[in-house]
């Protein structure tokens, strides 16, 4: 009678043990399968990169069998669709891309940084509650909408301003400037949110130290917080510029379609992405050298954005080490 409880406990222990060992076994088997499936999904992203590089390299090589690499990289004339002699010097497209990006950068980089400083150092909470959603909405607006805005609102406004100021009809129906400003509005939220994150990650102690020494908020922001967050700010700039270079719909609508080497923002330019749009919308037969040229342009674009992204993350990684 006295032995019974003891026995029951032993039995229970054995039961629990048996159940446990069996389920462990099954669980470990399932665990391995799950792990392989998950790792396979992660491998998929590597496969995507490999495919992008493979396809662009293959098509670019096929293009360079028809057109010399030297002509492509050094030529200053791009006329694959017009004229008797087709010329494939990529510089006008690169210059067009850089001009639009430059206008966007001049507009967005200082504006974005000042807005970020304002949000992180100055703004009262009620103002933040208005500004943050505004920036989120701006970040969520599709780029084709910005293209519409650039073509139908910004460009006519610039036309009018230029007419009033200089008395001349500087702006045509399309302009690098209008596209650039629209791209600038598009990348503004990127600069602002990433820079603000960087500013906020500057330890509070540094600010308190500056205030204790009698600094105003301006002194603290400009001499302590901004230098302290410089890495993050630079990274946000680089990532924003990457987005600007790869932007397609705005420039396809508002920058024009004439590939020319110019630094004047009231001229129309063709960017690398806008050229690709022109080709893929069916302006060229799918087998001709013009069609292949779009892959070479895409390869160059991919290379440019890849280098910028890598540089951005390099800076960000180095900057993270500082405070952690």
């Amino acid at each position: 009678m006295t032995a019974a409880p003891h026995d029951a406990a032993g039995e229970l222990f054995e039961l629990a043990n048996r159940g446990r060992s069996r389920s462990r076994h099954v669980r470990d088997g399932g665990e391995a399968v799950v792990k392989v499936v998950l790792a396979g999904c992660a491998g998929f992203s590597v496969l995507i990169t490999a495919l992008i590089i493979g396809i662009l390299a293959y098509e670019a090589v096929r293009f360079f069998m028809d057109v010399s690499v030297v002509e492509f990289l050094t030529g200053t004339e791009w006329s694959p669709l017009l004229g008797e002699e087709k010329r494939f010097g990529v510089w006008p497209l690169v210059a067009g891309t850089l001009l639009v990006t430059l206008v966007a950068a001049i507009f967005a980089l200082p504006t974005g940084l000042v807005t970020a400083v304002f949000l992180s150092e100055y703004a009262p909470s009620w103002l933040r509650a208005i500004l943050k959603p505004v920036l989120e909405i701006l970040a969520g607006i599709p780029t084709v909408v910005y293209g519409f805005f650039a073509l139908l609102i910004i460009n006519p406004s610039l036309q009018w301003i230029a007419k009033v100021v200089t008395g001349e009809e500087l702006f045509g129906a399309y302009s690098a400037g209008a596209a650039g400003i629209a791209v600038g509005i598009m990348i503004l939220p990127i600069v602002t949110s990433l820079s603000e994150d960087a500013l906020r990650s500057v330890p509070r102690g540094l600010r308190d130290g500056a205030y204790a020494l009698g600094s105003t908020r301006f002194d603290t922001s400009v001499r302590v917080v901004i230098p302290g967050a410089l890495g993050g700010i630079m990274a946000s700039y680089l990532l924003a510029i990457t987005r600007a270079i790869g932007e397609t719909m705005i420039v396809a609508l508002a920058a024009g379609g004439l590939a020319q080497l110019t630094v004047l923002p009231w001229r129309q330019v063709q960017t690398m992405t806008a050229y690709m749009v022109q080709i893929f919308l069916g302006d060229a037969p799918a087998t001709g050298v013009e069609f292949k040229s779009s892959f070479a342009v895409a390869a160059l674009l991919f290379l440019m954005t890849l280098l910028l992204t890598l540089a951005g993350y390099r800076i960000l990684a180095r900057f993270r080490e500082e405070y952690e």
């Binding site: 995507i48 990169t49 662009l56 990532l239 790869g246 992405t273 895409a298 674009l301 954005t305 992204t309």
Partner: peptide, 15 residues
Amino acid sequence: ISNLAGVPSIVYGIL
């Protein structure tokens, strides 16, 4: 993955 996030969407179109 960080790099993929920076690839212009038109390049994904080509892929």
